[in-house]
């Protein structure tokens, strides 16, 4: 790994200033769990790392006046996992965190780093995508809010501008009665990155599916929503046959990516099965 200088500003403005010097060789540092792997394999060779751990104001974790869940970018994944607020807000998030890597990684990895990394093999982005979440980014041009479906552009590519930082995650409240599930498939060890991940949410009104949201990640270059599947589910009465059809549609529409963890063909098979199973779980209220 190359040598680097670590700076630890205490104010956001300071951090942004250092980052704006030369975004090519200066890099924000959240928990460093992803960054260090990139640097060790020498895919990245930054000269300076700007640690955000002392920057004040990046650690909020609460509901705002409109009922949005607001999570500061330096909140550790472990804090998210243990938060009663999160558990009440959306239990699927709390549950997904239990199998996200291991407790040692979760103790240091941050929400901001997790969302900015852009690796599709991550557990929270598909859930947050399904929930319609967005991030607040701060940069030389001031703050802006980026919906998650506009954040991920490609494999390790995000729409964050050079020198821009994620400062907050904003998740809008779920309509009353909505239930969700996240299923993670691993091909290697059980604590591996996902080979495919499926998030599913819906609620029932008069026995009909309302506002279904399905998102897939890891099998694909970016986390994606599946509008065609959602359309096929909306307004229908839940049934095994419907969920199987949803799985089939999901597989048909998806452009999967082959990697060490599975071929595109296999991933498509798994997505088919997992979309069906995730919907079944939501229906069963598990």
């Amino acid at each position: 790994m190359n040598a680097f200088e670590l700076v630890r500003p205490t104010r956001l403005e300071e951090a942004l200033e250092v980052l704006s010097e030369d975004p090519e060789t200066v890099r924000p540092f959240g928990g460093g769990t992803a960054l260090m792997l990139l640097m060790r394999s020498r895919l990245l060779q930054p000269r300076r790392l700007v640690s955000l751990d002392r920057v004040s104001g990046l650690d909020r974790l609460d509901l705002d006046g409109e009922g949005n869940l607001r999570v500061g970018s330096m909140v550790r994944l472990r804090d998210l996992e243990l938060s009663a607020t999160v558990e009440r807000f959306c239990p699927a998030i709390s549950r997904a965190l239990l199998t996200l890597s291991n407790v040692r990684v979760r103790n240091v990895a941050t929400v901001g780093g997790h969302l900015a990394h852009g690796d599709p093999h991550m557990d929270l982005p598909p859930i947050l995508l399904a929930l319609g979440a967005s991030v607040v980014a701060q940069g030389p041009a001031g703050p802006r809010q980026i919906p998650l479906d506009q954040l991920y552009l490609g494999y390790y590519a995000t729409s964050l501008q050079p020198g821009e930082l994620i400062t907050e995650l904003v998740i809008p409240p779920l309509p009353e009665g909505t239930r969700g599930s996240y299923l993670k498939a691993t091909a290697l060890s059980a604590d591996d990155w996902p080979m495919a991940g499926v998030a599913a949410f819906f609620r029932l009104e008069q026995g009909r599916i309302v506002e279904p949201r399905i998102a897939v990640s890891a099998a694909t270059t970016t986390p994606v929503r599946l509008p065609a599947v959602e359309a096929a589910l909306a307004g229908e009465a839940p049934s095994e046959a419907l969920f199987s059809e949803a799985g089939r549609l999901a597989g048909r529409d998806l452009h999967c990516l082959s990697d060490l963890r599975g071929s595109a063909a296999y991933k498509r098979e798994v997505v088919r099965v997992y979309v069906r199973r995730a919907l079944q779980q939501v229906w069963a209220g598990r």
Binding site: L37, R40, S41, T99, N102, A187, L188, S189, A190, D191, D192, L260
Partner: peptide
Amino acid sequence: GFTLFEEMRFEDGQVVNASLADYKLLGMRD
């Protein structure tokens, strides 16, 4: 671990998963 998933992968003789991030060992949950 060797039985279920540990495997050195090669492309043109080059190991392509030479790290514990991509060559996964059996973990506690396995």
